[in-house]
């Protein structure tokens, strides 16, 4: 296999490009269809480039369904979730790294073990718990159960452990309490790790489907992913509207990814390695 020669290079490029196209086609198709008219949608052979960019479908989705409401819900849930998760992660990682108490590391390894247990299993009881607490259709139910995420705590704890002891003592001698040290020194230094967590958690929250579906009944509490599935009923065979709806669900993450690509990829790599 000649790889260093020109033919080799061309072949590699060709393979990669074909692969890339196959990865992207669904998205392209979704975006294109979202701008089509119903007639254009049913055309065979398919239209690859719409003659005009209709916004009609988007208007329909945003106005008729409660889609606007769904988007707001997703945003609220994501914001609450990320804020609380970051808060809990910081406090917990601090306790497991800088504070000393007997059995600390053993207890932490135990929790790491818990990471293995699938969410689907926990969801059964958690759903029952939500029902019993009468938290169905509340933001509480949508956010609180998952703000303690051992993976994120693991990532941040590692980062904290890398901060030299001398910095801690310097701060204590300067008169800082543990709490002040955490927020004035450790957290600012840990920005990269925290951004990682914000990105991972934000994406996860926006994209989550199973749990929001379980704990919401009322349409006005649905998140955008759950709303999308209910919209499928309403759209019937109007695929152009369906694509527009899907597009709305997907586009924020696509934009985020375009901007924060490197960060997100390193975040996933870091998170994945531990998984």
């Amino acid at each position: 296999m000649k790889e260093n020669g020109k033919t080799g290079k061309v072949l590699i490029y060709a393979a990669l490009i074909i692969g890339a196209v196959m990865m992207v086609v669904p998205f392209y198709w979704m975006i294109i269809t979202a701008f089509k008219t119903p007639e254009q949608v049913a055309q065979m052979p398919p239209i690859w480039w719409p003659t005009s960019f209709l916004t009609e479908n988007f208007e329909y989705v945003l106005s008729s369904g409660e889609f606007a409401r769904y988007i707001i819900n997703s945003i609220i849930v994501a914001v609450i979730s990320v804020s609380l998760t970051v808060l809990v992660t910081i406090l917990t990682a601090f306790a497991f790294s800088r504070l000393k108490f007997p059995g600390r590391d053993i207890i932490f390894s135990l929790f790491l073990g818990f990471m293995m247990v699938p969410f689907e299993l926990l969801a059964i009881t958690n759903y029952v718990t939500i029902v019993r607490l009468e938290w169905i259709d509340t933001y509480r139910a949508l956010t609180l159960p998952y703000i303690a995420n051992v993976l994120y705590i693991y990532i941040l704890r590692n980062f904290f452990l890398g901060i030299p002891d001398s910095l801690y003592w310097a701060a204590r001698i300067d008169g800082a309490s543990n709490f002040k040290y955490l927020w004035r020194i450790m957290v600012p230094i840990s920005k990269p790790a925290i951004i990682t967590i914000v990105l991972l958690n934000g994406i996860d929250s926006w994209n989550s489907f199973l749990w929001p579906m379980l704990v919401t009944n009322e349409p006005e509490m649905r998140t955008v992913t759950v709303g999308l599935t209910s919209f499928v009923q309403a759209a019937g065979v109007r695929y152009e509207r369906l694509m527009a709806a899907a597009f709305i669900v997907v586009i924020p993450m696509m934009i985020l990814f375009a901007f924060a690509r490197k960060y997100i990829i390193t975040a996933v790599a870091r998170g994945g390695i531990k998984g």
């Binding site: 030299p164 001398s166 910095l167 003592w169 310097a170 701060a171 204590r172 001698i173 300067d174 008169g175 800082a176 309490s177 020194i185 600012p188 230094i189």
Partner: peptide, 27 residues
């Protein structure tokens, strides 16, 4: 240590990397 009113200079300086010089001194 925070209650003893002492100043300590570390071998590796232990300066706060995210703060400016004056913020370090003024901490």
């Amino acid at each position: 240590p925070d209650k003893r009113n002492i100043g300590l200079v570390f071998q590796n300086y232990a300066l706060y990397p995210h703060m400016k010089v004056w913020e370090n001194i003024a901490f």
